[in-house]
């Protein structure tokens, strides 16, 4: 595909990382079958920085995003802005994570990120539907405001067709993704979790989405990017961590590494290189 060449040249200034936003220590997840999916992950992301997670699909990246997004339970320590987050799910779920300033663009927009039968305007508030701005009074939601809000998002993110009353399933993949991104990015989150931002998205939309992610970084958000596209990781990230079999194999700076080295690390062959 010709489009992938375009990707390598994402315009961006060097990052100017601020204070540490996300700290993860010794994160472990065991799935229903007793298989350990995350085997002690530790990492950190600072404000105004993109940490890219490279890896072959199925090596724990999804679990990492889902734990941080409040979908899965885990053991270990996660701090956001210095404050610890409950990982047992008893006092914390997707809703409280959002309240703490964690936005989550899930890897699978059709399975997780959208209710396909809901209209675009309903999806534009999905997860944020408790927001005071969307309520008419203590009992009722303000559907008029929701539609108006969605119209704004649709315009700013160039969603086509620009019709908030269309069910999400009737939009193309790229436009569905833009609905999710608009919803999650316009909240000015402290931390944005974003998985496979451009999977199944057309070329024009890919450029658009990459630009928005960089803009959010420059506005001071910490961004954790998971992608199986090495080009995407290399062109967007300020630092790259490689995951293999539920572990972090190592960290690299994009300028000091290449697809070959990352590929070896993704296959579990640790590049012994002095950092």
């Amino acid at each position: 595909m010709v489009g992938r060449k375009v990707l390598l040249h994402v315009e961006k200034k060097p990052a100017s990382p601020g204070r540490t936003i996300l700290e993860v220590e010794n994160l472990r997840v065991v799935d229903d079958r007793g298989v350990e999916r995350l085997r002690g992950i530790s990492l950190h992301v600072s404000a105004g920085e993109i940490l890219g997670i490279a890896g072959v699909a199925g090596n724990g990246q999804s679990e990492l995003l889902e734990v941080l997004g409040g979908i899965e339970k885990a053991t270990g320590t996660v701090r956001l802005d210095g404050q610890e987050i409950d990982l047992t799910g008893k006092h914390s779920d997707g809703r409280t994570r959002r309240a703490r300033g964690i936005a989550h663009v899930p890897e699978d927009r059709q399975h997780l990120g959208l209710i396909l039968d809901f209209m675009a305007w309903e999806n534009c508030a999905f997860g944020y539907h408790h927001d005071a701005a969307y309520q008419k009074n203590a009992l009722l939601m303000d559907n008029g405001k929701l539609v108006a809000d969605a119209e704004g998002k649709i315009e700013r993110f160039d969603v086509r067709p620009p019709n908030p009353r269309l069910p999400a399933k009737n939009f193309s993949g790229g436009n569905q993704q833009k609905i999710v991104l608009a919803r999650e990015m316009e909240r000015a989150p402290k931390l944005l979790l974003v998985g496979q931002p451009t999977r199944g998205v057309d070329i024009g939309a890919i450029e658009f989405i990459h630009k928005r992610i960089i803009e959010l970084r420059d506005a001071g958000a910490a961004i954790l990017l998971v992608s199986v596209e090495l080009d995407e990781i290399l062109s967007l990230s300020d630092r790259i961590a490689v995951m293999f079999d539920g572990r972090i194999m190592g960290e690299r700076l994009p300028a000091e590494t290449d697809a070959r080295e990352l590929g070896l690390m993704m296959a579990g062959i640790a590049g012994e290189k002095a950092a």
Partner: peptide, 18 residues
């Protein structure tokens, strides 16, 4: 809203904190 979302897709509802 949450009832309808959950009825359409349980995984998505959990993602949204429902």
């Amino acid at each position: 809203y949450e009832i309808r979302a959950f009825g359409k897709s349980e995984p998505a509802a959990v993602y949204a904190g429902i």
